[in-house]
């Protein structure tokens, strides 16, 4: 039981971050806090991949000696593929954050609030005084 808790601490941290991110997205009323929750969620998935890429006794995947491809022992280096995949995921996260903030700024300029409940009220007032 103890090994289950302490031996897999990478995955436990992933789970905790996932939960915090989901909590932020659902229960926080401010739009920017929802975005922060979304970013935490994305980071937790990045952490999951990196946890899976580590190996016991593995070192950084940088080739030091130059004695040709036969001398390379893949078990001595950590798995480099998830790291490359996560580079792409980080770029996607940056782009998503950029688009999200552009949308949030447009919402603020139109409705003058970033609070979800006040926003819904103002939207309803918009709808009842029909502007179409």
């Amino acid at each position: 039981m103890l090994r289950f808790l302490t031996g897999h601490y990478g995955y436990w941290f992933t789970l905790i971050l996932l939960t915090i991110g989901l909590y932020g997205m659902i229960f926080k009323r401010n739009l920017v806090k929802k975005l922060i929750g979304m970013t935490i969620f994305q980071v937790s998935i990045i952490m999951f991949y990196l946890t899976c890429a580590a190996k016991f006794g593995g070192t950084v995947p940088v080739l030091i000696d130059d004695s040709g491809p036969a001398a390379v022992n893949p078990a001595a280096y950590i798995n480099a593929l998830p790291h490359t995949l996560m580079l792409t995921a980080i770029v996607v996260g940056v782009a998503t954050t950029g688009v999200a903030f552009a949308i949030v700024i447009t919402i603020y300029k139109r409705y003058k609030t970033l609070d979800e409940d006040v926003l819904l009220e103002r939207m309803k007032k918009d709808h009842d005084a029909p502007a179409d």
Binding site: V94, A95, G98, F101, A102, I105, T106, K109
Partner: peptide, 20 residues
């Protein structure tokens, strides 16, 4: 590309659309 886009994001968000 990444440098250009990060600077473009900063500039565009700062001088976004006028108050509507």
């Amino acid at each position: 590309a990444v440098m250009g886009i990060m600077v473009a994001l900063y500039d565009d968000i700062l001088t976004g659309e006028p108050d509507a």
